[in-house]
Structures are given as C-alpha cells and as structure tokens.
Amino acid sequence: MKAETIAALQSARSERRAVVLATRLSDAAEALVYRDKAEGPLAADAAVVAAARRAMEVGRSETVDVGGAKIFLNVYVPPARLIVVGAVHIAQTLAPMATMLDFDVTVVDPRGAWATTNRFPGVKVVQEWADEAFDKMGLDVSTAVVTLTHDPKLDDPALEAALRSDVFYVGALGSKRTHAKRKDRLREAGITDEQFERIHGPVGLNIGAKSPAEIAVSILGQIIEARARRLDALAAPKAAAA
C-alpha cells in the first residue's frame, strides 16, 4: 500500500465519500475507485473498477477473481451517522456510547442551556431546530435519527423531516400513550400511517432498561440491528444468484 493511498482514504472519510481500495494480491498494485472516478495503476482495468463499484453498493469487502487475478476489494463507506435530537440526560450517555461504536454523532437542540459542548465533550453539538439542522447536514441512507426531548414542538418537526427522508432508522422516546398521541399529530401534519410505522417507538429494544445508560444500550442495540438487517437485505440478491 502506498502512503498516498492512506492519505486519500482519510480525506474520503472526512468528506463522507465512499471509496473502494482494489489491491491485486500477486503484486500489491492498487486502484482507488470512487463513484465518479478511479485512480491508480489498476484503474485501467475496467473489470476491476466494475467489481469495485458492485462491492461499494453492497457495502462489503471481499476477494474476487478478475480475469484470473485475485483482487481484494476493501470497501470504505462513511461511518453511519447518528443524530440525537435533544441534548438531554439520556443523550449524555447515548452520544459517547455511539461514538465508541464508530457512529459519527451529532446532538441537535435549539435550547442554549442544554446544547453546550461542556455537557457533551468530544461530540458535535448543534444549537438549532432539528429540521433546519437536517437541511444543512443532509439526511441519507446511512443516517439514524433519535428524538429524546419529550417535547412535541422539538420532536415532531424532527420526526417529520426524518420520515420524509430515507434514513435507515428513526426512533422516538416516549411511552405507548405518548406515541399514540404523536401519531395523531403527525397524521395531521401529513405523515401517512405507513411512514409513521417506520418510527421505533417506544424507542429501543425491550430489555427492561431503566437508567439513562441502559436506555442508551437498548437504543443502540436496536440501531445496530436495523443497520445489519439493511446490509443483509442488500447482500441477499447476490447471495441467491451465486
């Protein structure tokens, strides 16, 4: 591997760009394959570039045979992103745990007293209304959104925006009763029942979680499960064809 390759992989990460590093095992020749371009000595081989783009779609690294040469395709996708709406007590344990799990975490709360960096050391904190923050960040398929404020005027706009996007997970803190009322409100805002069903509410796996840290574990367990199911579904058609 070239030192420049390492630098390129790191800048792709900071720009949240997916990239595949293709390496020919016989001589360690490389190509860096992006969605829109390919670089390096191996990039001249169209079959290698095509195989790398397929691996990027599925999001799984693998060794393939291209014209008799063994090529390892290492897929570097941007880390999944977790947006936590509500800089509340649970968020203070959820954010560092999610960081430990390689999520790129942002805490969003328009209330200045809550959204302070000294309550969230090392975590991105955005003091804005959620829907405005989402517009700037861009919700995508590798993003999870969790609302924790208990306050409809903060949670609802966030849920509406999340449900109109293709984020892979939406969770909302609140009891069954709260969740039923939420359904009525969001319906009035034009959210269909089908869209509403995407919300995990009450949020988290049912493991009897009580403390903020336990609730954070139950939420993160559910997010990990949702992400794994999505990746399995992406990989399934290929497995069936093989």
Partner: peptide
C-alpha cells in the same frame, strides 16, 4: 473513530516519521 481508518492513521504517522511499516488485512 472508525477502526480500519484508525489503524491506517497510525500507520501513516509511523510512515511519515521514517519507520518501516507493513499492513496486514483479513481478505477472506
């Protein structure tokens, strides 16, 4: 943060400081 890129980050730092460096990758 990401495990794989943490490794590469350290490898890059070693390399830049003039050390000989190798990377081992699980491929199958």
């Amino acid at each position: 943060m990401s495990d794989a890129l943490d490794v590469l980050g350290q490898v890059g730092t070693w390399k830049a400081s003039g050390k000989g460096v190798a990377i081992a990758t699980v491929i199958t």
